[in-house]
Design a protein around this nucleic acid. Structure first.
Length: 363
DNA sequence: AACAGTCTCAACCGCCTCGAG
DNA sequence: TCTCGAGGCGGTTGAGACTGT
């Protein structure tokens, strides 16, 4: 019942493509366009099967393909979407303009997966690995801004104490902080060379983070407004950390229950750091994606995998807020209004707040 | 220098989806 | 409704590069 492989045929070449073959394929597609892959090899004078041609073109030769190191923003998106959708590389690739699913898949398997494991996070479930879970750790973890959630492969597993009630995985936060972290060896000398993992630790701001930071700043304003209202316990019975008020002082617990505050692990100094946001200084949007993920959890029935950030980037929701796109410089851009509206919608829903009034106060 | 082990990623394989007939 | 085939997708492989001894 198995289908006959498309690439059966005498004299069909396999393996690495030569420059000459690439030239032929590029030349043909430039002249005739994509499609009709079955006929392309013959017409282009290639001893390859059509499928091989298509893969070579879509994964490697296509001019708009972006190659090279992944930005921290891209890493965040990959991790969040992977948590939400698993190994749906094509879905993830749709949110990373100019990246191919194959490249993302490779990057995940060779870099991100290992880093998550190094941090004690199960790359499949995105939850803390059982052996590394420390149920005694609660709130107010001492944080080091710019380093807490960065996926630094050199970080020891126990460097970042994890609350049992924290999101199922930590997210890199450094992208919006303009943090330039020099990677050093154990003796303190800077690491040179072209190691991908080293390069990736150099954080820089981008148009993506700036745009999303604006949304984050707006959402923080929502938080400031809403935080003036006392929200009784029990208002958020689902989707929030399981924690009894008796276990924490009430003022802190209130912060913890604020849907626009950070998770339990993302402690007060980080929250305060957002209150006087500088658009250019940035703010890491992953917090908001995470928060929104919790909101989704609050609103709907979700499986255990759905705990942070992801649904915003999932196709259904991102249709609301517009998918990521790319500007003429190749930078990822988002729909600011769409994201803002989405955040506002969630704020209104969560607090049963008058939407119009809320929006007037914010905008 | 030589070798072994590890890593990276382009390419392949086989199954799935979907549209055309 | 069924069949077929093109294209899409995710898992896996293996050649070459890199690193350590």
């Amino acid at each position: 019942m198995s289908r006959k492989p498309c690439c059966v045929g005498e004299g069909l070449k396999k393996g690495a493509w030569t420059t000459e073959e690439d030239k032929k394929l590029i030349s043909y597609i430039h002249e005739h366009g994509e499609g009709g892959w079955r006929d392309i090899p013959q017409k282009a004078g290639l001893k390859r099967c059509g499928k091989s041609c298509r893969l070579r073109w879509t994964n490697y030769l296509k001019p708009e393909i972006k190659r090279g190191e992944f930005s921290s923003e891209e890493e965040q998106i990959i991790i969040m979407l992977h948590a939400a959708r698993g190994n749906k590389w094509s879905v993830i690739a749709r949110h990373l303009p100019r990246r191919t699913d194959n490249e993302i898949k490779n990057y995940w398997n060779t870099h991100l997966k290992k880093r998550l494991i190094d941090q004690g996070i199960d790359p499949v479930t995105h939850k803390p690995l059982a052996s590394n879970t420390n149920p005694t750790v609660t709130t107010t973890a001492t944080t080091q801004p710019g380093s807490l959630h960065s996926l630094d492969a050199s970080s020891p597993d126990d460097q970042y104490p994890r609350s049992t009630s924290m999101p199922s995985m930590s997210l890199p936060i450094s992208s919006g902080l303009n943090t330039v972290s020099e990677i050093t060896t154990n003796d303190g000398t800077p690491v040179k060379g072209d190691s991908l993992s080293c390069k990736k630790s150099i954080k820089k701001s981008s148009s993506t983070s700036r745009l999303l930071n604006k949304v984050a700043a707006k959402a923080t304003s929502i938080k400031d407004i809403l935080s003036a209202t006392t929200i009784p316990y029990g208002s958020f019975s689902n989707g929030f950390p399981e924690q009894s008020p008796n276990e924490e002082d009430s003022s802190k617990a209130l912060v913890d229950l604020d849907p626009f505050s950070q998770s339990l692990l993302y402690t007060e100094h980080e929250i305060h750091a957002t209150s006087d946001l500088d658009m250019d200084q940035g703010y890491d949007f992953s917090y908001f994606l995470e928060k929104i993920g919790r909101d989704d959890h609050h609103n709907e029935e979700h499986d255990t995998n759905v705990e942070y950030g992801h649904d915003l980037l999932m196709s259904d929701v991102s249709q609301e807020v517009s998918s990521t796109s790319v500007d003429d410089q190749g930078n990822m851009i988002g729909n600011f209004e769409g994201w803002s509206s989405y955040l506002l919608d969630h704020a209104g829903y969560m607090y049963d707040t008058d939407y119009d009034l809320l929006e007037k106060q914010i905008i």
